[in-house]
Simulated scan of single mutants.
Amino acid sequence: MRVALFVTCVNDAVYPATGIATVRLLERLGVEVDFPEAQTCCGQPQYNTGYRRETVPLARRTARVFDGYDHVVTPSGSCAAMVRDHYPAMGDSAAAAFAPRMYELTEFLVDVLGVTDVGAYFPHSVTYHPSCHGLRLLGLGDRPRKLLNAVKGIELRELPGAQECCGFGGTFAVKNADVSTAMGRDKARNAVSTGAEVLCGGDNSCLMHIGGVLSRESQPVRPLHIAEILASTEEEPWS
């Protein structure tokens, strides 16, 4: 199977290890991964800020860049939800036709490849935060948990208030900084209470927000994208 990777702005600029882990994981499972270099932002920041009309050219461009691929995989529930949930409502036929071909990483693994055990090895204690877009718009359900449960050596710990928003929300964190910070502190406190070494999730934007709180409070919990856990093996362990 041949797919295209939509790495997203946040991963490309701040968390390149997540994109590398996604490719490593998919290739280990026999998937051929292309990376169209013309890809840019999907338009989510503009769309969420109210510039709906100005987002259409970005959506149209994204559809054009990934034309010809039956499956486009992204390690971001947020960006996948933007494409799948909002592109069809923009009134652009190309963007609407492209939307169903976008898959968040964990749903691609479980629903398309039909695997939950990806051969991962991660001998650490982990707690999982389900981001809002993956939880509510994509309906990922227990797919990420199924994948994590199959990881050799992992110790999963329940996160109190797991379904509560971390407070990032993209531009929400800028417009409502005090509320956003308070929500981030709640989520960080819950993560610390589990005693886990690692807080994982499917959106680095959320992990960046929570991780900022953890760092400022000198907490030992390390945020880590689920792709990096699933890509880790006994031969190539997480460092």
Rank of each mutant, 00 (worst) to 15 (best):
V115I: 14
E54Q: 15
R222H: 12
L26P: 00
L224W: 01
N149I: 06
G114M: 11
A4H: 01
E27I: 09
L105C: 05
L207H: 10
S232G: 07
T55S: 15
R53A: 15
P123I: 15
C200T: 15
N11P: 02
T194K: 09
Q163Y: 10
V23N: 01
D186H: 07
D12C: 05
N48L: 08
A21M: 04
L5T: 05
V10L: 14
E234A: 15
L214K: 11
S93Y: 04
L138S: 04
R53F: 07
E107R: 01
I210C: 08
H124R: 15
M1C: 11
L25R: 10
T194N: 12
R143A: 11
V83N: 03
P45M: 11
Y47N: 09
V56G: 05
R60Y: 01
C41L: 12
R189W: 12
D111V: 13
P88R: 11
P75M: 13
L214D: 03
Y103T: 00
G134F: 00
C41I: 14
S78C: 04
N204C: 14
R143V: 01
G68E: 06
A150Y: 13
L199C: 01
A38M: 04
C41N: 13
A13Q: 05
S205T: 15
P16M: 14
K187L: 06
T127F: 12
P88Q: 12
D186A: 03
K187E: 02
M208H: 10
S180F: 03
H124A: 07
V126W: 09
M82C: 10
A99S: 13
C206Q: 02
M1D: 12
C165A: 10
Q39E: 04
A191C: 13
T181F: 07
A182Q: 08
D67M: 10
I226R: 08
M102R: 09
C165W: 02
R64Y: 03
A120C: 07
P223I: 09
Y69A: 03
L26E: 04
G119Q: 02
G167M: 05
L138K: 03
S76H: 10
E37D: 03
V73G: 01
G212D: 01
P160W: 15
V73Q: 06
E234W: 13
A97R: 08
L105I: 14
G134V: 09
G139W: 04
Q44H: 07
A191T: 08
K187I: 00
R143Q: 07
G43S: 09
R52Y: 12
L5P: 00
T8R: 09
N176D: 02
S215N: 14
E228Y: 00
D178P: 01
V115W: 12
E54P: 00
L113K: 08
T171R: 00
G50F: 11
G184D: 04
P100C: 09
S131W: 01
M90N: 04
